[in-house]
């Protein structure tokens, strides 16, 4: 369980101060698939950064089980991310000078996972292990980043607009892989997107507007990546 309470976050000072998060509280159940939905500038990415420990809030707490990550030192926060968190970003952030296998190994080595090739196979890249990111399509690169994130066996996977740079067909494919792996490995998913259709794949949808949570609802039936509109 992740218990988020009264998170505030501002950027800038004085007259230029912009409050991006205005006292957000939320509870995320273990193994939930939650989508944070909002327009550009609604604060959803900042919210994701704060609850994943990439940024510190101005006030409030983010408690994983019994551990409040806002109180952790940088060193402990790094260790916390290593043991618990996986990330998938819109821009992939793969290491361009490392092969697919080595990029995935970046995640796997952190937790001593020797079976990381399973994850490469799971995202359908078994025949591309020796390729470099520059030789792959956008969709393939994002699948590498999925395998890399999951190779460290995270308890919570954070995704920031994972299909933002992909076309429809590839986007659906990547989402399908993520959903299948979610079922198989039972981790919590927190995904940020501006695409309302993707929200239909989640258990819980959190709608954000101007730094506040506008609405939280659960989907009666989760759609698959190939059932949703685009």
């Amino acid at each position: 369980m992740i218990a988020i309470s009264n998170i505030t976050k501002s950027y800038g000072t004085g007259g230029n101060k912009n409050q991006v998060l205005k006292g957000i509280s939320l509870q995320i159940a273990d193994r939930d698939f939650i989508v944070i939905l909002g327009a550009s500038g609604s604060g959803k990415s900042t919210f994701l950064n704060v609850i994943s420990g990439l940024e510190r809030p101005d006030s409030g707490s983010v408690v994983y089980g019994t551990s409040d990550i806002t109180k952790l030192t940088d060193e402990k926060l790094t260790r916390f991310r290593r043991d618990n968190i996986g990330f998938i970003f819109q821009q992939y952030y793969l290491l361009p000078n490392m092969t697919v296998e080595k990029n995935v190994r970046m995640g796997a080595d952190l937790t001593g996972n020797r079976e990381y090739r399973e994850m490469i196979n799971a995202v359908g890249l078994e025949d591309k292990t020796g390729k470099y990111p520059g030789e792959l399509s956008g969709g393939e690169q994002q699948r590498v980043s999925v395998a890399r994130a999951l190779a460290k066996k995270p308890k919570v996977l954070f995704l920031d607009e994972p299909t933002g740079a992909l076309d429809e067909r590839t986007g659906r494919q990547v989402l399908d892989y993520i959903c299948r792996l979610h079922k198989e490995y039972s981790f919590t998913i927190v995904m940020v997107t501006h695409n309302q259709n993707i929200a239909e794949m989640a258990n819980t949808v959190v709608k954000m507007n101007s730094g506040n949570i506008a609405e939280v609802y659960t989907n009666e039936r989760r759609k698959t990546a190939y059932e949703i509109g685009w």
Partner: peptide, 13 residues
Amino acid sequence: KTIAMMRVFGYKY
């Protein structure tokens, strides 16, 4: 950038 990304994943500085 490489260091930052590794730290995001949980590598020690």
